[in-house]
Write a protein that binds this DNA or RNA. Structure first.
Lengths: 245, 245, 245, 245
DNA sequence: TATGAATGAGAGTTCATTCAT
DNA sequence: CATGAATGAACTCTCATTCAT
């Protein structure tokens, strides 16, 4: 199922679109793919892939059902286009930040985390991950795409920040991959949660304070990473922590 | 009005045959819920709630569509039954373990985590959370159910373990809820991943070693929790961690 | 679809049943058909033929679904049995009453009407007509049966009462059939109504007072029938007969 | 997910073809509701509400199942639309006729009755009442609807005609509601009958002459209503009419 | 290009009927 | 005789996709 001609065209159009206002006839036509993708993102994040109706997407973008199919040959291709547009640029920037950072590695990690939060975590883009998680199994062609374009780079990014800390003697020599996971997971998990259960109005559920959660998480994990933290540690308790299988 | 043609049944029945002997009917009656729940769990985790067809569940359990409805009045109730059987009991047990535990709070937490891994994390049941995350928005009935029967109790469980550590002077006085989140999230996130992208065969993805991840996570977080760990830590870096960089 | 062997057997049993109390094992078995028919009548009248579930009939009669099918080979046969038992004897008696009545024809008709009300109109049996009306079209074999055993005799009964009035010079010479219809229809209609819309709790519907309706109806129609009424006299005495507005 | 095979449509379509020419699509769009309503009316009256399958309605109107739901969101709404189109308007018109009528009240009632017969009684629409009677118990939503939109207005219509007669001194002072009932019931009952048992081909049933029945009925009841009729009545028969025999 | 009427394969659920026990 | 677990056809309603205009 290669990206169709129509789909590819829309991609090149996107570049030319921009963020202008004037609702010229011409303009609208050029902006169509943009508008459709925006509508689709919002709905996919809200309701998931399967539960999003193409008609609703079209409606939200202000076009008819038929028009949607003029730009994207199927719901699946529409979804792919959304994913591509949403997550592609977001990782390279981070990698660069790591390379050029001057301060302590703890501060670097805190900075990365906060940047991620501002750029992704608190935007609808964060919801994409929920959709992927939820529906790759029913939509296998997306798995490789997402693994290559999103997951691997993100892992490299945080791993390299941890490696930097270790190499500079700031962090203990923990497994890179696992440490990166421990760093990212709570934040990702929180985001996931916010886009699903958190968005439902369930009785007795305290609205989790995202920033507070992040603060505690960083406090906890950075302290666990730092070599100085280990200094005062007396017992081998933590070492045996995972032991009791 | 007249529904079935006689004798058609034997054909479909043979699939399920083979294991039973004497009081067939009765034995089946008792085993059914188990079989249906197993089939349902597998399919729900695989395909999600909405995409799982009741007929497929029935087929997998070796019965007809109608039989499924003899045991569970709706797909939603079937799902709830799956959750109850797999998650609800476990949390109650954990709560008791906390009340009676004698050792250090770090060990307690490690023990809870390991128990969870043995009983849920490495079984198909771990996939349930993925389903919930993916589809609560479209099935509000399930949201409240899951919040009440799983999320709230699980939060109470881990919060109480952390509180125990704080009260006994073992842990720093961190916000209970946030700390519990930091404890649970990486593990949950890992299983989430395993049941979605991890279950697809993507090139170049190292299968994450779950046990290693957990070990590192515990090492990191428990060290971050413990008061002794804080002893040597003197710089303000971690304290300012959450500060806008 | 001739009455099945099982069904016929139940019929002869019915005769032997009676109205006894003692719940002997023996007794219950003999009473089964009776109980099943009672349950079926109640439910058919309530919900109609198609919407009545055989399981509910069985339950109400205190037996299992399978047992019902031991006595009646299908829902259709069960329904026929109910109709037969309920309406068969009810007409002959009326015919005899007409033959032996001594008073005025107006009184005779009023008496017939009241008898019908006591014996049928205010009992569940009246609901049978609703079911027939509602579902003969989907159940054609019942039409002939009902026309022969219920409708024709009832028409003969009232027609003969009108003919008596005309022959004795009490009534005007109206078409028998049409007059009989005018006599019966409002009462039948009322009963029909009571068993359908009247049984629903709709806003703003005044519960129709059955006896009052009948009184007005008789007042109106008998006055219309009588020859003297046509005379053109002046008093208002009878005018107040049904009065009570 | 992919639903249809291309080109399958033409086959089923041919059935509906033949009447159209140029702006086919649009013309159809406008005619559809009419066609669907006609098909629905016929089938509802024939088989009842529950036993009518939506697919059959669609088929009869020459469209697919899905198309029906494009016009009416549910079977119940389809039914309501049928009722509205056939009955609701008529009653309003009748009400106006009462307000503006100049002649005698007897003539007014006869006129109302005849109008009803021409517009409803002798059309398939007359069968609607049968459907309601038969199935309101199982569809409470329809009960309220019919009570509000048909029964109450119809009762008001005939009651007001009777009141007019009383106020003008033409009719005796009978209870309005009961008199209206006596006026409407025989006619309703007759059509009820025609659409159920009357529609079956039973041996030995004289097809009732509807017009003759109506004539006799009017003759009888109007005479019963009029004050002049009461003039000559001297016997106590009518007075004792309601008396328990 | 754009529209939106039309399609039809399913999905969940119900229930008359059967038959092993 | 009696039971009740099991069946599976049928029913309403949904929605991705097509195509005449």
């Amino acid at each position: 199922m290669p990206p169709s001609v129509v789909g590819r065209r829309s991609a090149s159009r996107t570049v030319a679109a921009g963020r202008d206002r004037a609702p010229t006839r011409r303009r609208r036509k050029e902006a169509r793919p943009q508008e459709l993708l925006d509508a689709a993102l919002a709905l996919f994040v809200d309701k998931g892939f399967a539960a999003t109706r193409t008609e609703e997407v079209a409606q939200r973008a202000g076009v008819s059902k038929g028009t949607l199919y003029l730009y994207y040959p199927s719901k699946a291709e529409l979804f792919k286009a959304v994913v591509r547009r949403t997550l592609t640029h977001l990782i390279a920037e981070g990698q660069e930040a790591v390379a050029q950072y001057q301060g302590s590695s703890s501060d670097l990690i805190a900075a990365l985390m906060n940047a991620w939060w501002e750029r992704v975590g608190c935007t609808p883009a964060a919801g994409i991950h929920k959709v992927i998680l939820a529906e790759v199994r029913n939509f296998p062609e997306l798995a490789q795409f997402y693994a290559d374009e999103v997951l691997a780079p993100a892992d490299r990014l945080f791993s390299s920040a941890v490696r930097r800390g270790i190499e500079r003697g700031e962090f203990r020599a923990l497994p890179l991959h696992a440490a990166a996971h421990a760093l990212m997971a709570p934040v990702m998990f929180m985001t996931l949660h916010q886009h699903s259960i958190g968005a439902c109005h369930v009785h007795g559920a305290q609205p989790p304070d995202a920033r507070a959660l992040m603060r505690t998480h960083l406090d906890l994990v950075l302290r666990g990473l730092e070599v100085r933290a280990a200094a005062g540690a007396r017992t081998s308790a933590p070492a045996r922590a995972g032991a009791r299988p």
